[in-house]
């Protein structure tokens, strides 16, 4: 398989990755032991593999790793600082918004991008923001509540 060298920033650290031309960004993350970003559908239809690339939430399963060249990538592993949970993580834990937890990194990363742009959202806006994130456990009640709670916590 032909390979491509890419340089990017991952969770604040500059890295040089050797990836295959046909490797998705998600596969590259997993190959580099960043497995918090989940493979759930592999077709861009559940947002379970959500990460932030240059501040925008995207699905890592439907993008080539090579396309991330020069990018600034933030994954679920990069949110907590020195062991302290990010307010969104804290809110998800407090509200019981993670049940099986498999969709949770995708929800948290999507919420992270959303709250940066909409620091004071209402419930309707939060629902719309999470419309692409599939969860099979919670019925979305607690994840939506957690994002609203996180918005409050981020202003405290």
């Amino acid at each position: 398989m032909p390979e491509v060298d890419i340089a990017l920033t991952v969770n604040g650290r500059a890295v040089k990755w050797h990836v295959e031309a046909g490797e998705t960004l998600l596969e590259a993350l997993h190959a580099h032991h960043l497995k918090g970003t989940k493979l759930i559908c592999g077709t861009g239809d559940c947002c379970g593999c959500g990460v932030l690339l240059n501040g925008n939430s995207i699905n890592a399963c439907c993008m080539l790793a090579a396309q991330a060249e020069g990018g600034d990538l933030l994954t679920i592993e990069g949110l907590a600082q020195e062991g302290k949970l990010h307010p969104i993580q804290e809110a998800f834990a407090q509200e019981g918004a993670a049940q099986c937890g498999y969709c949770t990194p995708g929800f948290i990363m999507r919420a992270c991008a959303f709250l940066q742009e909409h620091p004071h959202p209402n419930e309707t806006e939060v629902r719309a923001a999470l419309a692409g994130n599939i969860c099979r456990c919670t019925g979305y009640v607690k994840p939506v509540a957690a994002v609203l709670r996180a918005a409050e916590m981020m202003h405290e």
């Binding site: 918090g36 493979l39 679920i76 592993e77 834990a93 993670a98």
Partner: peptide, 21 residues
């Protein structure tokens, strides 16, 4: 009581705790 889940931390931090990982 509404206790926090005992596994809340690994779930919200993306820790490799599943068979898949």
């Amino acid at each position: 009581q509404k206790k926090r889940r005992v596994d809340a931390r690994p779930l919200v931090t993306g820790a490799p705790v599943y068979a898949a990982e």
